[in-house]
Design a protein around this nucleic acid. Structure first.
Length: 508
RNA sequence: GCCGCGUUCGUCUAAGGGUUAGGACACCACCCUUUCACGGUGGUGAUACGGGUUCGAAUCCCGUACGCGGUACCA
């Protein structure tokens, strides 16, 4: 019987959740759902110096907003907890010790300054960044270069130390990546990574292996930036004697900045004017606010959809997918190898499509909140739904509903009279006065009937409908935009329509 | 520098030896619309380069270039 699929998303809580991070979550989630497996959230907070309060809660909220909720995690529990590495601290040491005993790791007593000296000493034009590896290992202060007695003395004296992996001289580590196929590294070219830090915390390299093992992770998906350290992890699985349980790896392509090259960063978002975080993030230290997709007016359905398509497709021309469809169709072997540049225009297109596609009730609360934040008295839901239905085709972001529907809630404060004045004359004034009266007496309040009688009146007054339609629009809307004028009149009602016409007449 | 991973229209991508290299975003034009959008139709536009293998290469192999990632007691 095949093992139950278990995957994890393992962020470090150092700030806002980035686009690439959410996509990693998505692919994990989809893979788990597709294969009837579990999706675990594990917080990798082993670097105490980079801990940011609130970041974990923020990440959990992002996942909730996206609808990508984990089956296990610090907030929901599970059989493999704790799910914060800081709370698992005591677990890791025994494995580091085991590696020392078996000779695959060693104690290193070098202080930061000594490491710096080493890097300076071995630095050459051909080797600008010397590594702590087999070439310098014996030149440093560690249990490889020291005698057993010296090492023991240092340990007994409480001299701070780290535990480093001893990378083999010249072996080839090969593993199969689900996206890239077979990948090989020569161990002689990889450095002796620190596994256990002086403060007793594991580094990522030890923690990821130990926790993936303990949590019975079967498939490990992460960003491509981890590929170079994969051989260290593969070796640790082997040295710890867990080789047969090593997860299958998949290193996801990076999401790149739209202009130039390189990984998409928060700074690029600021610079290019689009968000890179899922939701608003306020840095607790600086109080800097970084805008998120949610607050900008993105629908979670669209956000998830667009992220899914950044590096994956199902082989058909279909681009619009619900989360459910994605879970049915997702497969890791259709994930791309190459990175994808993020295109905000396309992102907005996805959102526009979702606004048109979803029933308005579905996102009414969000639109309602945006409108209220702008001071609009939204009124009852039935009316809001009619408004949204009328204008949604012209909204790309949920925040666009404000500009597109403001005049359906309030009398426009400013009228674009310049669009009317040049062709304004006594005949038109006369026409609109008559129109106001006729509208006042109207028995039907349907857009189609209004249009018919309005045009009939124009004909009776010998005026082309085209000459009074724009003025009417300006009177009701305030500007040259918006849905059909008679649809607008129908929505705002008879009294308001007459009021706006008379109001405009006074200004002309 | 070294190691690794990549490379199809401006962007996201399809095509897993045989297609006029297809679609989407963006852009342009036209149509629809007595507003602005939506929508519809059409258009511009790509296999990085050089060698192989093959009857035949975007596709397989090698090299080159370019890009990205890594090279921390950060993840």
């Amino acid at each position: 019987m095949a093992k139950k699929v278990r995957v994890r998303f393992a962020p470090s809580p150092t700030g806002g959740l980035h686009l690439g991070g959410v996509r990693t979550v998505l692919y994990n989630y989809l893979f788990a759902r597709r294969n009837g497996g579990d999706f675990v959230l594990r917080i990798e907070d082993t670097d105490q110096t980079r801990f940011v309060p609130g970041a974990e809660e923020y990440i959990i909220n992002c996942l909730k907003w996206c609808g990508l909720e984990p089956d296990e995690g610090p907030h929901v529990g599970g059989d493999y907890g704790p799910y914060r590495q800081s709370e698992r601290k005591s677990l890791y040491r025994q494995y580091a010790d085991r590696l020392v005993k078996s000779g695959h790791a060693y104690y290193a007593f070098d202080r930061p300054e000594e490491l710096e000296t080493m890097r300076e000493r071995f630095k050459t034009p051909e080797n600008p960044t010397p590594q702590y590896d087999r070439n310098v290992r014996l030149e440093m202060r560690n249990s490889c270069s020291l005698t057993l007695e010296e090492t023991e003395t240092l340990l007994e004296d409480g001299v701070p130390y780290v535990i480093r992996i001893r990378m083999p001289e010249n072996e080839t580590v090969t593993f199969t990546d689900m996206i890239r196929g077979e990948v090989s590294f020569n161990t002689g070219l990889v450095d002796d990574k620190v596994l256990l830090k002086a403060d007793g915390m594991p580094t990522y390299h030890l923690a990821v292996v130990v926790d993936d093992y303990l949590m019975k992770i079967t498939h490990a998906f992460r960003g491509e930036e981890w590929l170079p350290s994969a051989p260290v992890h593969v070796l640790l699985w082997k040295y710890l004697g867990w080789e047969s349980e090593m997860p299958q790896w998949a290193h996801l392509p990076l999401i790149l900045k739209p202009d130039g090259n390189g990984k998409l960063s928060k700074r690029d978002g600021d610079r290019l004017g689009f968000p890179v975080f899922a939701m608003n993030w306020t840095d607790p230290k600086t109080n800097d606010l970084t805008t998120g997709f949610r607050e900008l007016g993105f629908l979670p359905e669209a956000f998830v959809n667009l992220l899914a398509m950044l590096g994956w497709n199902d082989g058909t021309p279909q681009e619009l997918f619900t989360l459910t469809e994605l879970t049915e169709k997702f497969s890791m072997d259709r994930v791309h190898k190459g990175g994808a540049k993020f295109d905000f225009e396309k992102a907005k297109w996805f959102n526009h499509e979702w606004i048109k596609k979803l029933p308005v009730e579905h996102y009414r609360p969000m639109v309602s909140a945006f409108l209220e934040a702008k001071g609009i008295a939204v009124g009852d839901e039935a009316y809001l739904d009619k408004v949204m239905t009328l204008v949604k085709d012209r909204c790309t972001l949920l925040t666009d509903f404000y500009e597109q529907s403001k005049f359906l809630f309030e009398t426009p404060a400013q009228l674009d009279l310049d669009a009317v004045k040049p062709k304004w004359n006594a005949d038109k004034k006369d026409f609109f006065e008559a129109a106001a009266n006729e509208i006042q007496e109207a028995t039907s309040w349907k857009a189609i009937d209004l249009e018919t009688s309005f045009k009939a009146l124009a004909a009776a007054k010998n005026i082309k409908p085209g000459e009074v339609l724009l003025p009417l629009r300006i009177m009701l809307v305030g500007g040259k935009f918006g849905p059909g004028v008679f649809d607008i009149a129908e929505l705002i009602g008879k009294a308001e329509t007459v009021k706006r016409i008379n109001n405009a007449l006074q200004q002309l």
